[in-house]
């Protein structure tokens, strides 16, 4: 008896033209055609989108939660990356 489970896919939906595809969930499918067909049935029953991306979950790589500080904290003290850091005269317009 073949006990082979269909691979897992991550599903991304573009809600409307002009917006980016956003992750909505995952599902199992034997191949890409079935993954898109299933994504349509499972995730877009109520006009949730106009375009679907699927990617096999094994091809998705993520940062480690334990690296969160090392990766993202340094940005916190770089306030000079924001426009409000710069002192300019009040009379100055349109900048």
């Amino acid at each position: 008896m073949n006990q082979k489970e269909w691979p897992l896919w991550e599903v991304f939906i573009r809600a409307k033209q002009g917006l980016n595809h956003k992750h909505v969930g995952s599902l199992h499918a034997a191949d890409v055609t079935m993954a898109i067909a299933n994504a349509r049935d499972v995730y877009t029953r109520r006009l949730e989108g106009i375009s679907i991306w699927v990617v096999e979950s094994k091809h998705l790589h993520a940062s480690e939660p334990s690296d969160q500080e090392a990766l993202f904290d340094p940005a916190e003290d770089k306030i000079y990356r924001h426009p409000t850091f710069y002192n300019l005269p009040i009379e100055l317009k349109h900048m």
Partner: peptide
């Protein structure tokens, strides 16, 4: 449904 699931896998493997 087992034969359907197996057939889908076999088809996917063949296409790949």
């Amino acid at each position: 449904g087992e034969w359907v699931r197996d057939a889908a896998v076999a088809y996917a493997e063949k296409q790949a």
